[in-house]
Amino acid sequence: MKGFEPKIIGFLCNWCSYEGADAAGRARKAYPANLRVLRVMCSGRVDPQFILEAFKEGADGVMILGCHPGDCHYKEGNLQTLKRYYVLKRVLSTLGIEEDRLRLDWISAGEGDKFVQVVSEMTERMRQLGPLPR
């Protein structure tokens, strides 16, 4: 699998995680180019259909990044995401999509470093897993 570069879609909430990604940029912190970001107002907007579409369209991994629990700009949208994530993970495993290909994490506006770390980890893990078979 040497030389394989995964494609990763990241759904980032507008208020925390997208800010965190921008913060990493402002600090000129390099991270793997594999991530493609899609901004949503709240991680709660992430319909499981979007995740399946991303896998169908060629994503090898999908990340949902939201505000930390308790810090959601919309109070509890991220908790709805958390619940959906657990249910969807079970569905994905029946569809032959390894557990690690979907990752949910919380990144605040100030956590540029954590953003870089999460993206790097995800990219490395996807390199190990190889392309999603289609």
């Binding site: 949503v40 107002m41 709240c42 709660g44 907007r45 319909d47 700009h73 949208g77 709805q80 959906r84």
Partner: peptide, 19 residues
Amino acid sequence: GCGTCAAACPSGAIKAHHF
């Protein structure tokens, strides 16, 4: 406008404008 309801609507009856 968080869109949480649209993501959950099982009929696709809720439209989240701009998203």
